[in-house]
């Protein structure tokens, strides 16, 4: 079997080397080169001494945090109520369906909804508040980003709630806990794994969104992803772009370690 295994493994191993290992090494290498390709640590020096770069990173993390918190606030009750409906699988399909529509089309819809003469503004004028600038504001950016990420938070929380043994809830009731206590002491702790993977699935992409910052945020918000895109596609300073890329990778790893699954005792809670 070994010889056959070697044969059919070749394409996959090639993929691992060429498209997983090599690009990571290349982006790290590139981050140590200047605009002419000579070796330098100047990019990192420039990054850590530039207040604009540091403020941009902080803002990007802040906005990603706000987006993640908003998404979590909407998604947790949704997942909780969903796990208590009758036709769960059907409703779940309906939550997933919007993720199959291209991101750009959804962003495009919001350009129409939020524009100066758009639906929301028509309503505001009708209500006597008058037209507001909605598109190209921080709020609209956060709103659309949250809208896009909601399904990715609902799914892991829903799965965690589904995995939970329902007799635990009955047990908690029998022992005299009220609805809120049951939720706080039993349901919430047991669904934390879902929340953790949901936070990962929302926070990391929120750091790297770059088309929304332009189309919806009007470039007022600069995310790490937008900065990378600018350096690669506009100013052609690949070294600096890669440096920010490495920073983005490091923040991603940090998030994953922070929200990583705690080592659980084996064979604990489940019957």
């Amino acid at each position: 079997m070994t010889k056959t295994k070697t044969m059919y493994s070749i394409p996959y191993i090639l993929w691992l080397l060429l498209f997983v290992v090599a690009p990571v090494l290349l982006i790290v290498y590139q981050s140590f080169t200047d605009i002419d390709g000579a070796f330098t640590v100047g990019n990192y020096g420039k990054y850590f001494t530039s207040s604009t770069a540091l403020r941009m990173t902080f803002n990007s993390l802040l906005y990603a945090g706000i987006i993640t918190a908003a998404v979590l606030l909407i998604s947790y009750p949704t997942a909780y109520f969903l796990s208590r409906t009758v036709h769960k699988q059907l409703w779940l399909m309906l939550i997933i369906l919007p993720t199959w529509i291209n991101l750009l089309l959804k962003a495009y819809a919001f350009i129409g909804i939020f524009s100066v003469n758009g639906t929301i503004n028509n309503f505001l004028e009708f209500a006597g508040i008058g037209r507001q600038q909605i598109l190209f504001t921080d709020t609209s950016f956060i709103f659309v980003a949250a809208y896009i990420e909601i399904p990715f938070m609902i799914l892991p929380i829903f799965n965690a709630l589904e995995e939970m043994n329902p007799s635990l809830i009955s047990a908690s009731r029998d022992l005299g806990a009220n609805t809120w206590q049951t939720f706080q002491r039993v349901i919430l702790p047991l669904s934390m794994n879902g929340v953790r993977s949901g936070v990962q699935a929302v926070f990391i992409p929120s750091l790297s969104l770059f088309m929304l910052t332009r189309l919806i945020g009007g470039n007022r918000v600069i995310t790490l992803g937008k900065a990378i895109e600018q350096h690669f596609m506009v100013t052609q300073n690949w070294g600096m772009g890669s440096t920010i890329g490495v920073i983005l990778i490091l923040s991603m790893v940090a998030i994953m370690l922070l929200t990583g699954e705690k080592k659980r005792r084996k064979g604990g809670n489940r019957a």
């Binding site: 498209f19 997983v20 290992v21 990571v24 290349l26 790297s208 770059f210 895109e229 890329g245 994953m256």
Partner: peptide, 24 residues
């Protein structure tokens, strides 16, 4: 874990690193 690297990487990183790779 190596398999999952591209699953968790932000797409900007995938795009930028592939761009460097193709150029090299």
């Amino acid at each position: 874990s190596m398999n999952n690297i591209l699953m968790v990487s932000p797409d900007v990183i995938i795009g930028a690193s592939f761009l460097i790779f193709f150029t090299v």
